[in-house]
């Protein structure tokens, strides 16, 4: 048993929140630079230039890349041999989010109830926490803030096996087409295939929080990622939706086992501010 204090978890989450919101990952920045070289539309190149300068300013001033600093989505892998001391895990994560978003001058965009009062919780809690128990005595925390412009454009398609590969491609393409300029393209498209309703959505979220330079380890799915990217970039939506050849930096696909009669496809879109930060305790 290795002991990890709730305090350390809290402090780490607070740091990751600010880091994720103010520092674009180097890989996303590289994707922007490559996109600017490849983009055929002059307006699109101008938009990409603005985004690159924006990321530089944000990093230099420790200012948020985007004003929508999102809901704080936390992926936690907790080693089975860890004993958390001095408090509850979820409380520690939420305290970290509250502190990071308050002390880091990030926007608080969480309302406590969706339908009637929609009252802001004031500190961007609660976080959306996805926990997995894994082997070992460490905790891996990945924080991926997600804004509404892109989150609102996600979709779940409950396909059937007969829809096959073509059905999957069509579902992804139509979701991205329909999203238009709202998710601030160029985007990172996360696709979750298989599982059931909720698992497909979780896979899609993991996929869109994955690094733009990562590839699915299964070569068939890695090829699908490339094919989907080619299709999506054929939509012409372009940077900021103003028209152009780069609509997405990357399509990430995650899959999992499913029922003999199911083929769920979830699409979760991440925007050009494809942000995440990670720490291992």
């Amino acid at each position: 048993m290795r002991e990890i204090s709730a305090e350390l978890i809290r402090d780490t989450v607070a740091r990751l929140a600010v880091e994720a919101c103010c520092r674009l990952p180097e890989s996303t920045l590289n994707a922007m630079r490559r996109a600017r070289e490849r983009e055929l539309s002059p307006t699109g190149r101008d938009v990409l230039g603005q985004l690159i300068r924006n990321a530089d300013i944000a990093a230099a001033e420790n200012a948020p890349i985007c004003q929508d600093t999102g809901l704080a989505v936390v992926f936690a892998e907790i080693g089975q041999d860890v004993h958390i001391t001095g408090g509850l895990f979820e409380d520690a994560v939420n305290q970290g989010v509250a502190r990071g978003y308050t002390e880091g001058y990030l926007r608080k965009s969480s309302v406590e109830e969706p339908l009637f009062e929609r009252k802001n919780t004031g500190d961007n809690t609660p976080a959306v926490i996805h926990t997995r128990l894994v082997a070992g005595d460490r905790i891996r925390l990945r924080l991926a803030p997600k804004g509404a412009g892109s989150e609102n454009k996600g979709a779940l398609h409950m396909l059937v096996p007969a829809d096959g590969l073509e059905g999957v491609k069509k579902a992804v393409l139509e979701t991205v087409r329909h999203a238009g300029a709202s998710p601030c393209p160029p985007m990172v498209v996360g696709v979750g295939i298989g599982g059931n309703m909720e698992l497909a959505c979780l896979c899609a979220k993991k996929a869109c929080a994955r690094d733009v330079e990562s590839r699915n380890p299964d070569p068939r799915y890695a090829r699908l990622e490339d094919e989907l990217l080619e299709l999506v970039n054929g939509l012409g939506t372009g940077p900021a939706g103003l028209g152009g050849s780069v609509t997405a930096f990357k399509v990430n696909v995650e899959f999992c086992a499913t029922h003999i009669a199911c083929l769920p496809v979830a699409v979760n879109i991440n925007c050009n501010a494809a942000r995440h930060a990670e720490a291992v305790l």
Binding site: V47, Q50, L51, R53, N54, A55, I57, A58, E61, A63, P64, I65, C66, Q67, G149, A181, C184, A240, G241, L242, C271, N272, A273
Partner: peptide, 11 residues
Amino acid sequence: AATGGAAALIS
């Protein structure tokens, strides 16, 4: 349209 995501630059 302003560039979505370019919030620090616009600031």
